[in-house]
Amino acid sequence: MTKKAPVLFDIGWNACINCGACVAICPQEAGFVSAFDTIAVNTPCDIACMLCEDICPVVTITHRPAAANSTTS
């Protein structure tokens, strides 16, 4: 089974309605939350199941590879 690459989530705060659905669906351990009661945005997610993106009623969660800073061009 291939392990998914860790991702960092980004939340479009203007559209976020603080509904809590992303945290409710998140299979991470306790504490994978931001200061604004969403899923964590500063900690890489190594599960990368993207359920939080799917559940978001206003589609305001996106992600990028957690290792995006180490460019290799």
């Binding site: 809590g20 659905a21 409710a24 559940i55 009623p57």
Partner: peptide, 26 residues
């Protein structure tokens, strides 16, 4: 502490929910 319960996770209870059973509401 609600659907996003962290307390349940502290105790290691199986709180994980399936995407097929959580309605996304607006």
């Amino acid at each position: 502490d609600g659907l996003q319960s962290q307390v349940g996770k502290w105790a290691g209870l199986r709180t994980h929910m399936k995407i097929t059973e959580l309605a996304s509401c607006l």
